[in-house]
Design a protein around this nucleic acid. Structure first.
Length: 853
RNA sequence: GCGGACGUGGUGGAAUUGGUAGACACGCAGGAUUUAGGUUCCUGUGGGGAGACCCGUGAGGGUUCGAGUCCCUCCGUCCGCACCA
């Protein structure tokens, strides 16, 4: 069978599956359901290797579960809103919709060549009004339920993309797409109240036992729960109190100053009359928030002249600073500084000459001489210098001091989260319009439901910078329900909103009357296995968990956690190449010369082979999946993706690897083709075999068990290895003797069946060649014959003092005395014992024997 | 700085609860078939030694009859978070 015949076979089977609507899912309460889902792609134009890996993994799971008798839902769609479409519009003068739908068509065709067991009848595109009208309706539901609100706030402004970014989208102080340093701006923004669920989102992580530990930890850190207290300070000459947040109220007696954020309301107010304070605050805001900047940044403060009274020490007045290291959006935007027990406070105190008063005495330290040097003491110990707290340990002191603050009415216990509400407003065109209107006085008026969807205008000018919706001459001007003139909200939603509920839409993708049909989502959800990249560990995966809760609250869903099982795949890497000038070179433009050195393919210029890195356009180390599928077939690409590297680890793309997969497919086909005539009739199981045939049968059934277990545990590389091992075993049987036809048929068929979820085309072709009428895709997963599970005899390694010296063959489950005798009689044992007396003999039944002398 | 993961041949990687380290591949070497080869087949392939054997899972120590696996110290690589009070 040539490679072109293989390509033809792939098309044939893809057509057959489609014609028979094999993968279209329906509710069937007689079967257990299984919802297999991979992260849907952004329609950028072409699929890349990351998609191939993702969908190969998901398809293996879906096909395997189907064979195991599950009613499988395995859908696909398009995360179709997003900024690149506007980029294309600006650059090439194409409307974002045109560009997006053309990309979808292209990528759908590419995906179809992979032979995925997808239910294409459920395909969705989030940029379609059929999708986003439900998103708008849900927005109004959330608004009524108090889960969405609007407020003026400081936002992360991306000066290149001209839009606001969520905190999650700011990486090292830079926009996650543009890479431009983010600026701070004050704008009216819509927010999802994700913090309302902060506690639940955190606690429920424990129940997600089929999620990677790493992802749960990242979310835990992101939500960032801390327990502490709010403490009020009275400020001399002012009426209102200054409230600080602290997790160390036990160190209150060590306080030597207060500090507030540069954008704290008090700082803002004083800056009006104090130009140098204003200058200082401006300087702080300009300071980058990048890693390096923070590393180098000095602790800086500005004494604003106010004095705050210590709540327990009426004689102590603490100076109030504006400090560059205090953040407005965490806690209250104000802190008390206790230099002895906090490193930042210490640096600040040393610089501005504030006293350092230790109040926690480390165990074993001398209270008379203990002093803090360059490092603050943050450990446990005994409280001292602290009046009514003296002698307590740290946890008890925290409790005691908060109780006292509460009694005095100057503070309270407070749980604080690092998580902030999800700002969803984006000043962009290609997104879901936020369905609200504004009266002339600024009052918010929800768009009446019978006016949904609010669709995007098509005649848009992308040439001018800024929000095209806002710049549109007429679109935003409209009439309020009561007849007064009004304007539309011109911001669109963050594109993470669409991906936060698409799993629910898949359950009833054509339902008109709401985002999802209750009976359908109740049957299919939650997603049993979700597969995608770890880069979404906090963004998408946290938003979706919030959204499921919100949808439950307004009555659409019955569950909280959308993804019961999560698997995060590794990246695809490839070697990088550079010429002498440092220009990146494509893999196809370099080769190894006879001396084994890398050179350019033409001019013999030397090439520097660099690190193996994630495939990226900028480093030109990408391989186009379509080229591989055209040249070697989808099964080859799929087998390569599953071989060798565990799916959660990075995979290095190599030509050798793809050749290896290709050669194996041919070897598998050859086995089927060459033995097909010698097999017994289909459907007859071998019985009462002995000798080599029995051994072969045992290997076959052990492989069924091994492969099944490996797939269940996502050890796909192991599953491939076990199958190749069985193939090797079968080959050696074929060479040494002639297996009985029924035994040979069983071995070949099991090999083909176990390989089917990985390489569905060639195995389907093989199944037909083996004389079956029923499609392999409709054939159940094989069951191992338990009676073949164990051999009668086992080979036991014999160790002497922990070193392997020989082996014995004994009946399985042999008595200890027999095993010991055989072990001690083994020539290798006798030699290694060197006549020394036996001290001890350890026998692990059917495993190992260790003789100790 | 904080949190986490990992470290096994030339390479990717195997090794249920501690029980024959290197499965399965890639690569390499030698051989066979072929007009040819992105072909197939055979043999070998952790290091040392002619050999019985010795040494080997980042380094060092420990527990154990037995450690890649468990404990301690150190080194290195990668990932996430980062002035979060």
């Amino acid at each position: 069978m040539s490679r072109y015949a293989l390509r033809a076979a792939e098309q044939k089977w893809q057509q057959t599956w489609e014609d028979r609507r094999l993968f279209e899912a329906k509710v069937d309460r007689t079967k257990p359901k299984f919802f297999a889902m991979e992260m849907f792609p952004y329609p950028s134009g072409r699929i890349h290797m990351g998609h191939v890996r993702n969908y190969t993994l998901g398809d293996l799971v879906a096909r395997y579960k189907r064979a195991r008798g599950f009613n499988v839902l395995h859908p696909m769609g398009w995360d179709a809103f997003g900024l690149p479409a506007e980029g294309a519009a600006i650059k090439r003068g194409i409307h974002p919709a045109t560009w997006t739908y053309a990309n979808i068509a292209e990528m759908r065709a590419q995906l179809k060549t992979m032979g995925l067991s997808l239910d294409w009848s459920r395909e969705i595109a989030t940029c379609s009004p059929d999708y986003y009208k439900h998103e708008q309706a849900m927005f109004l539901d959330f608004l009524e339920a108090g889960l969405v609100y609007r407020k003026e706030s400081w936002v992360n402004w991306d000066p290149v993309d001209h839009t606001v970014l969520a905190n999650e989208q700011v990486i090292d102080g830079k926009g996650w797409r543009s890479g431009a340093p983010v600026e701070r701006r004050k704008l009216n923004q819509w927010f999802f109240k994700i913090t309302e669920y902060a506690d639940d989102l955190l606690k429920s992580l424990e129940k997600l036992d089929r999620w990677p530990e790493k992802v749960r930890l990242m979310q835990q850190n992101w939500i960032g729960r801390s327990e502490g207290a709010r403490v009020q300070f009275t400020v001399e000459g002012r009426n209102e109190k200054l409230v600080v947040y602290t997790t160390r109220p036990d160190t209150l007696f060590g306080a030597s100053f207060l500090a507030i954020a540069p954008d704290h309301p008090l700082a803002d107010e004083l800056a009006w009359t104090n130009p140098s304070l204003q200058a200082f605050a401006e300087e702080c805001k300009l300071l980058g928030t990048s890693e390096e900047a923070l590393e180098k940044a000095d602790k800086k403060g500005f004494d604003i002249g106010l004095r705050a009274r210590h709540p327990f020490l009426p004689d102590v007045l603490l100076p109030v600073y504006v400090a560059n290291f205090v953040l407005m959006d965490y806690g209250t935007g104000a802190i008390f500084g206790c230099p002895a027990h906090d490193q930042r406070d210490l640096e600040f105190a040393r610089k501005y000459g504030r006293p350092v008063i230790p109040v926690v005495l480390p165990e074993g330290a001398d209270p008379a001489s203990f002093a803090v040097g360059d490092e603050a003491y943050t450990g446990d110990g005994t409280i001292y210098h602290s009046d009514f707290l003296d002698g307590l340990d740290v946890p008890t002191a925290k409790k005691t001091v908060i109780d006292r603050l509460e009694e005095m009415g100057v503070g309270e216990r407070q749980v604080q989260f690092r998580l902030r509400d999800w700002g969803l407003s984006r000043q962009r065109y290609w997104g879901c319009p936020i369905p609200v209107l504004y009266a002339e006085d600024g009052t918010v008026v929800p768009v009446p439901r019978d006016q949904l969807p609010v669709t995007l205008p098509e005649d848009v000018d992308f040439a001018r910078p800024g929000n095209p919706l806002d710049l549109h001459p007429t679109w935003k001007h409209t009439t309020l329900p009561d007849g007064r003139p009004g304007t539309r909200e011109t911001d669109t939603m963050d594109t993470f909103v669409e991906s936060s509920w698409y799993f629910a839409r898949y359950c009833s993708p054509h339902y008109e009357d709401g985002p999802c049909r209750k009976d359908e989502v109740d049957y299919w959800l939650p997603v049993d296995q979700y597969i995608g990249g770890v880069e979404h560990a906090v963004l998408h995966l946290l938003y979706s968990r919030f959204y499921a809760r919100a949808m439950k609250k307004v009555g659409y869903l019955s569950m909280d956690e959308p993804f019961e099982g999560l698997f995060t795949q590794g990246m695809i890497n490839h070697q990088t190449y550079q010429d002498e000038q440092g220009n990146w070179l494509e893999p196809g433009k370099v080769r190894k010369n006879d001396a084994g050195q890398w050179v350019t393919i033409d001019g013999e210029r030397p090439v520097k082979a660099g690190r193996v890195e994630k495939m990226s356009k900028s480093k030109l180390n990408t391989i186009d999946p379509t080229d591989i599928i055209q040249g070697y077939g989808a099964d080859t690409a799929r087998l390569f993706m599953l071989s060798d590297s565990p799916p959660d680890r990075d995979l290095e793309w190599t030509d050798g690897g793809i050749d290896g997969a290709w050669r194996y497919l041919n070897r598998l086909w050859r086995l089927v083709d060459e033995t097909a005539e010698r097999l017994g009739p289909a459907g007859v199981s071998p019985v009462d075999v002995a000798g080599p045939d029995l051994e072969l049968r045992r290997a076959v059934h052990a492989t069924i068990e091994g492969v099944t277990g490996a797939i269940e545990r996502f050890h796909f590389n192991k599953a491939v290895a076990l199958l190749r091992e069985l193939h090797n075993t079968l080959d050696s049987h074929l060479k040494r003797n002639d297996p009985a036809p029924a035994v040979l048929r069983e071995a070949v068929e099991i090999l083909v069946r176990l390989f089917n979820p990985m390489i569905p085309h060639v195995t389907e072709e093989a199944w037909e060649r083996l004389g079956h009428d029923v499609l392999l895709a409709e054939t159940p997963w094989p069951e191992p014959d338990k009676s073949l599970a164990g051999a009668d005899e086992v080979v036991l390694p014999i160790q002497v003092n922990g070193r392997r010296r020989g082996e014995i063959r004994v009946p399985k489950g042999a008595e200890r005395a027999i095993v010991e005798a055989a072990a001690l009689a083994e020539p290798g044992t006798i030699r290694a014992m060197e006549g020394k007396p036996l001290k001890k003999i350890v026998v692990v039944p059917d495993k190992i024997v260790n003789v100790v002398v």
